[in-house]
């Protein structure tokens, strides 16, 4: 009987592993566990709890796995492992509402772009949007793009919104802003997208960005009116 009970207690841990394992690592990746101030070097085969942030250096790639979940992150990116989970649309809406609960409703802010980063292509792999920078906010955004590409779009939206607030200078990164605003449209969150586009409109935009923004605004406005 005792054995049976023990088996029942262990079964969930065996079937649904609680930790991420580093399946592959190229270059350098670091981990910050829980509330620790320290970053430790990551090695292959190491396991991490979901309350860990993993960040990669230049020319580095890491592959993490927990059960069926596999996630590959390329260079100069960072991700909180707790974000590597599928969320329903309702859960996304709850998470967005949480911002409002935590804070008073925010007004549209007049944010000037402070970005001096260089947009480029990464050395390895393929990513829609990528910015080479050691700035941790940008690493977070690169990580959020990877979340999108890995199918964790809801988590990506939450991560990006949090990053834009915690690292205010990233608000001026128009390609990222447009990227995640477009993701809101993809999730049919038109009002949220509209608010984001209006905020982007106040930034310094090039002609191509202006045209894209106008197209998106027209599209979203039509959707909102409907």
């Amino acid at each position: 009987m005792k054995k049976l009970l023990l088996l029942m207690m262990l079964l969930p841990a065996m079937v649904f592993p609680q930790e991420f394992k580093v399946e592959y690592l190229k270059g350098t990746a670091k981990a910050q566990i829980g509330s620790s101030e320290q970053w430790i070097n990551v090695i292959e085969g190491q396991t991490f709890k979901p309350n860990t942030v993993i960040a990669t250096e230049e020319n580095s790639t890491i592959k993490l796995k927990k059960g069926d979940v596999e996630f590959t992150m390329y260079e100069v990116s960072a991700v909180n492992l707790s974000s590597l989970k599928k969320l329903s649309l309702d859960e996304l809406l709850l998470a967005l509402a949480m911002e409002e609960i935590l804070s008073a409703p925010k007004k549209k802010e007049d944010v000037k772009s402070k970005s001096t980063v260089v947009y480029g292509t990464r050395e390895t792999g393929k990513q829609d949007l990528f910015v080479r920078s050691n700035d941790f906010g940008i690493k977070r955004l690169n990580g959020a793009v990877r979340l999108t590409e890995s199918g964790f779009k809801e988590s990506a939206i939450i991560t990006a919104r949090e990053t834009f607030r915690k690292y205010p200078h990233t608000k001026g990164l128009v390609p990222f802003r447009l990227y995640f605003a477009n993701l809101l449209i993809e999730k049919n969150l038109y009002e949220e997208a509209l608010e984001e586009y209006y905020s982007i409109q106040k930034l310094s935009l090039n002609q191509q960005q202006k045209e894209e923004l106008e197209d998106k605004l027209e599209f979203v406005n039509r959707k909102v009116v409907k």
């Binding site: 309350n51 804070s103 008073a104 007004k107 690292y167 200078h169």
Partner: peptide
Amino acid sequence: LAPEYAGFLTNNDTKYSLRKNEFQKD
């Protein structure tokens, strides 16, 4: 502190949260 200065307190951005004040500033 404004979020720009959070780095003075910690290297870990999960150790703080942002809330807006009465002037709608984080």
